[in-house]
Design a protein around this nucleic acid. Structure first.
Length: 447
RNA sequence: GCGAUCGUAGCUCAGUUGGUUAGAGCGCCGGUUUGUGGUACCGGAGGUCGGGGGUUCGAGACCCCUCGAUCGCCCCA
């Protein structure tokens, strides 16, 4: 019979393991902790929706809908799509579940998203995001709130140093439209000198010329009309209040007049936290105010603001996740002692000590494994030797030692281990902190 | 969709202008040595050189196709 072939993983998916997986988990855990401080409520969302949930809200940018979504028909012929973002699904849930009664509602979630794209650094077909939204709040304070959450998250992840908040306003519908018209007119005058891509964008998505990477476009972008000249009084006032609030919350930012959003329903605040440490994919967290989205899904006018952040990108910046609690490895010297090893490990774990059991290979091998898995301490179980005058049936000799040198600062850790042992065994001899050891004791079953 | 680079043991890689039985380090398995054991040494398993076709007396090395990876462009909700 032919040897079965191993199926390949799907392009753009990842199997995350080891340090990277720890960093990933650390990002999610930090988000969960911080989001509670800001009282964002956790929501769980379906991973797929009717295609129209996304296609209607995303609308005209045809590339995105037709080429970059994972869509398929179910058995009933219904077109479904794996969620390419959280926002549209949350807006749908807001409407279909009557969450309007909670408005304004602060929501947070995280999980996998899917986009049919060519993978590159920090970009995958199945990727993961953190997401925070405030729905039903048109006040600039809501913008400040989501930005303060984002800012604190990055600070607590310890990556705020290399990341800057780029902030812009797109104004309200009227100012945005006036600006757009001015941009089209301006770029049209220079069309011949623009890059091919930007000439194309002039028709499809003129705002995007502003963040073109082509050097030929740069000089024109620098002199392009600015949104500030088109902001109405209300829009100006709104942006002013956001800036004021950020200052009060001590969130630092930079004005980025070229920062835009591709979709039409965005209003006012647009922002990205950007780093130069991730190659071409430098946006680590991005979002803005999307006052028009809920209406495209048939709901009432509902102002909202939110952001999403790529977990993989954050994890890359975090690098090594902070060390876990110190690990102790329980090493039974002989196979007969393995069940005692299990028992002691269980007792330690119940007491909150992170413990591993070395259960395979020779005794030597077990020490080797303990050394390499980063154990802070090793608890060795062996039969008490009769040479010391105590018959072997009396008990087990237990040694806890530490690979390097004894560190008195860890006495609380040592005392905890000792307490667990003495709570469950008779300790008939104990030599605390003998040279090189934290604990050196003979245990006897309690009768 | 487009472009560049790459694809040799589980991992990281070396393999001279194409030349006979394909190598190292780490890891894995076994053994010897070592004071409760972060040492050293010895041995072993493991590769259809991503896959297919071609050029050649001869291809891991050269050519074509294909699959995959990486990085970038487009796009970025």
């Amino acid at each position: 019979m032919a040897k079965p072939t191993t199926p390949q993983a799907i392009r753009g998916t990842q199997d995350i393991f080891g340090a990277e997986a720890e960093a990933f988990a650390h990002v999610v855990e930090t988000f969960e902790r911080v989001r509670k401080l800001y009282r964002f409520r956790r929501v769980e969302m379906p991973v797929f929706e009717r295609t129209e949930v996304f296609s209607r809200s995303i609308g005209e940018t045809t590339d995105v809908v037709s080429k970059e979504m994972y869509s398929f028909e179910d058995r009933g012929g219904e077109s479904l799509t794996l969620r390419p973002e959280f926002t549209a699904g949350i807006a749908r849930a807001y409407l279909t579940n009557g969450w309007q009664q909670h408005a304004p509602v602060k929501l947070a979630t995280h999980g996998p998203l899917f986009r049919y794209e060519r993978p590159q650094k920090g970009r995958y077909r199945q990727f993961h995001q953190l997401n925070a939204e405030i729905i039903g709040a048109g006040e600039p304070q809501a913008d400040v709130e989501v930005l303060a959450l984002a800012d604190q998250l990055l600070k607590e992840l310890g990556i705020a140093e290399g990341v800057t908040l780029q902030l812009n306003t797109l104004g309200d519908a009227a100012s945005r439209e006036a600006w757009r018209a001015a941009l089209v007119e301006y770029f049209r005058d220079h069309a011949a000198a623009l890059s091919e891509d930007s000439q194309d964008r002039l028709e499809r998505n003129p705002l995007r010329i502003l963040d073109s990477k082509d050097s030929r476009d740069r000089p024109f972008v620098a002199d392009a009309p600015r949104i500030d000249d088109f902001l109405g009084g209300e829009a100006q006032d709104f942006f002013g209040k956001v800036c004021e609030g950020l200052k009060a919350a001590s969130v630092e930012w930079q004005r980025a007049p070229s920062l835009v959003r591709g979709l039409d329903y965005y209003r006012h605040t647009a922002f990205e936290f950007v780093t130069d440490r991730l190659g071409a994919q430098g946006t680590v967290l991005g979002g803005g105010r999307y006052d028009g989205l809920v209406e495209t899904l048939g709901g009432p006018h509902t102002p909202a603001v939110g952001w999403a952040a790529g977990i993989e990108r954050l994890a890359m910046l975090v690098g090594e996740a902070p060390l876990d609690a110190p690990l102790l490895t329980v090493i039974p010297d002989e196979p007969e002692d393995e069940s005692l090893a299990n028992r002691i490990a269980a007792l330690l774990r119940h007491a909150g000590v992170s413990a591993d059991i070395a259960f395979r290979g020779s005794a030597k091998r077990r020490f080797e494994v303990a050394r390499r898995n980063g154990s802070r301490a090793r608890l060795v179980i062996r039969r008490q030797k009769s040479t010391e005058g105590i018959p072997s049936r009396l008990g087990h000799h237990v040694v806890v030692n530490e690979p390097d040198s004894f560190d008195p600062a860890d006495s609380a850790y040592r005392n905890l281990i000792l307490k667990v042992l003495s709570d469950h065994f008779d300790v008939i001899r104990q030599d605390r902190a003998a040279q090189g050891y934290w604990v050196d004791a003979v245990l006897k079953e309690r009768t």
